[in-house]
Amino acid sequence: MEITEKDVDGVAILSFSGSLDALTSPEATDYLEACISNGKNQIVADLAAVDFISSAGLRVVLTAMKQTRLAGGDFRLAALPDGVHKVIAMAGFTSILKIYDDAESASSSFRK
């Protein structure tokens, strides 16, 4: 798994690639926690290049959501591949998460 980060008007856009499973999720959690503790609480996770997510990856998402919201921000998802979307939907996360078609609309959603 790799994470690349860019900043668009104060919104951190994190592009994940590879798999978010029990092997990689600790690294993803560490990365997100570092972001949030550095004051970035408006985060978009661009998952277009994520080929696999398991329940371990969902824990990363849930933790990031709770932490950003506690800090007054939000954690939003963009560009979910079919498999990833199915897992998010099975867990019922679609009702508590904001999901966008692409990273651009996700980041601009913070300005509305």
């Binding site: 329940s55 969902l58 099975m90 009702s95 508590i96």
Partner: peptide, 11 residues
């Protein structure tokens, strides 16, 4: 519970 509120969610 796939319908729980965020604050009640456990992963």
């Amino acid at each position: 519970d796939v319908n729980a509120l965020l604050e009640d969610r456990v992963a």
